[in-house]
Simulated scan of single mutants.
Amino acid sequence: MNKLKHVLLIDDCKATNYIHKLVIEKYGFAETITEFMNGSEAIDYLSAISRRRDTAPELIFLDLNMPVLNGWEFLEQYALLPVEHQAGAVVVMLTTSLNPDDEARATAIAGVKAFASKPLTLEKIDEILAEFYPGCAR
């Protein structure tokens, strides 16, 4: 099984990030997992990738409702980043929102490839990897 070099978790809940990181580690498809508590921290990080010579994330799990810079605002600023900072990452919105309008809005945004309810599970990872990174799926 191949591994993704870098996965980004963006969620304002430490417990959620912790659980999602455990699930990703259990699945074993990512070499590096980076966590941020809001979209602003993640945008700052992504903006400085080339200066740090880090690997841009290939997969981003994004919460919708966060303080400072929410998921929608993150996506607006993410779209303004240079292409090499986006690196064609697959953005998966993970949320507790049950509002069908949120899903419709998210999937209408070019960068958002999937919309799923929390928590992240091994089954959800199976689906995401099978669709976007088949070489990394079990």
Rank of each mutant, 00 (worst) to 15 (best):
N65P: 00
A56T: 09
V7S: 08
A79E: 11
R138N: 06
T107C: 14
S40M: 12
P134S: 10
A116H: 09
I128M: 14
K124R: 13
L122K: 12
N99M: 04
L64Y: 02
A137S: 13
G111A: 11
S50A: 15
A89V: 04
T34L: 04
L120C: 04
G71V: 05
L62K: 11
Y45G: 08
M93H: 10
D11S: 05
L22R: 14
K5I: 02
V90I: 15
P100E: 00
C136V: 11
A89F: 07
S40T: 08
H20G: 11
I60E: 08
H20R: 04
I43C: 08
N2G: 06
I19L: 15
L94N: 07
D102I: 03
N2P: 06
L46Q: 02
I128S: 03
F61E: 00
R53I: 03
K5T: 06
P100C: 01
I128C: 12
L46I: 06
I24P: 01
T107V: 10
M37V: 10
M66F: 06
I10C: 10
E84Q: 12
R53Q: 09
A114E: 07
G71T: 11
L80C: 07
M93S: 12
H20P: 11
L98N: 15
Y133F: 15
P134K: 13
V68M: 10
D12A: 02
D44S: 14
N17F: 00
A79Y: 03
F115C: 08
K113E: 00
K5D: 14
L8A: 14
T107H: 05
K21C: 14
L46M: 12
R105P: 02
R52N: 13
H6P: 11
A130I: 03
N70F: 03
Q86K: 13
V7I: 14
H20F: 11
E35C: 06
S40Q: 15
N65L: 09
R51H: 13
L4I: 05
E103D: 09
A15H: 00
L8V: 09
L98C: 11
A42Q: 04
L59T: 08
I49H: 09
K21I: 05
M37P: 00
V92K: 01
L75S: 09
I19Q: 08
A42V: 05
F36M: 11
R53F: 00
K124D: 11
G28M: 02
A110L: 03
R53W: 01
G111L: 00
